[in-house]
Design a protein around this nucleic acid. Structure first.
Ligand SMILES: [Mn+2]
Ligand SMILES: [Mn+2]
Ligand SMILES: [Zn+2]
Ligand SMILES: [Zn+2]
Lengths: 144, 144
DNA sequence: TTATATAAATATAATCATTACAAATATGGA
DNA sequence: TCCATATTTGTAATGATTATATTTATATAA
């Protein structure tokens, strides 16, 4: 839950990414905010601490992190990319009411029935959508 | 492979969609072009037949079809929606070299390990990406 | 048939997430 | 310190999608 600057710097260095102030803060944000944030969420939060921060830097840094396999980019949301510090394969559910994204565990062993041996597979994304439990209750209460 | 205007009109009527000329042509295109086309592909092709066709109409029609569950919208491509006339659950692989999308059969039975009973699930999307067999060969031949 | 109300299509402009680019700043080594 | 390079920043451009107002087509009733 609490990461030191040193730990975060090390994570970056291990991926051959120079631990600049901005990069450390963005990675720290991702480690402490696991709700699959958008660029805007990250930018708005960090902008308070780093007034000179540019949104371009957030985009560039996340893109760099993605290439280094430090984060995964989710395209589960129709109009904004979501970023996930958890790079293990797992499923994502997005609620069409509130936009919240929930993780769920998956077993990919017997998912694919066809033979894909000839394909070089880099990423596997499992996206569900619908209504989350909280919003289902809200709907019942407001009767629509 | 060959659909009559009558068949297509009937498909629309069954979903309470009035079979206008544009809607028929767009649905016909989807039925005869199963490579998960983009709005631009559909528009460019049909624009030759229907010179007055508007891209807005293509968007509106596909959105209508989606709500009627006549098509599914795929967000596997980072910058353009893809449309699939096959609404059965199946997996999609997109090649990062050529952009082609391939279908594959899936078995969802034992995919999810967590309990999602409290969630109302509307859509399930399985997206893989990587390099397709054709492009793998091309890379080997051009040695990069 | 003609009038009229409604649905659908069109043209155009607006939105907005993302990317491109050039200039400014920071950093690490000589 | 100086300099080459990496990084960040501000701004503009891109491009897919959506919003809006107008025009056109369609169905129904008089
Ligand atoms: Mn996740
Ligand atoms: Mn498909
Ligand atoms: Zn919800
Ligand atoms: Zn390919």
């Amino acid at each position: 839950m609490n990461y030191s600057i040193k730990d975060i710097s090390k994570m970056l260095s291990e991926k051959d990414i120079r631990p600049s102030h901005q990069r450390i803060k963005i990675l720290e944000y991702l480690l402490e905010n696991k709700q699959h944030p958008t660029v805007d969420m990250i930018y708005n939060e960090l902008h308070e601490e780093i007034p000179t921060l540019s949104k371009t830097t957030v985009y560039n840094t996340l893109s760099l992190f993605n290439e280094a396999k430090l984060v995964r980019i989710l395209s589960i949301d129709d109009n904004e990319a979501r970023y996930d510090i958890d790079i293990e394969n797992h499923g994502h559910f997005i609620c069409k009411k509130c936009g919240d994204i929930h993780d769920f565990e998956i077993n990919l062993d017997s998912l694919v029935k066809d033979n894909l041996d000839e394909f070089e597979i880099n990423e596997k994304h499992i996206y569900f959508n619908g209504i989350c439990p909280k919003c289902k209750t809200d709907i019942r209460q407001s009767n629509n």
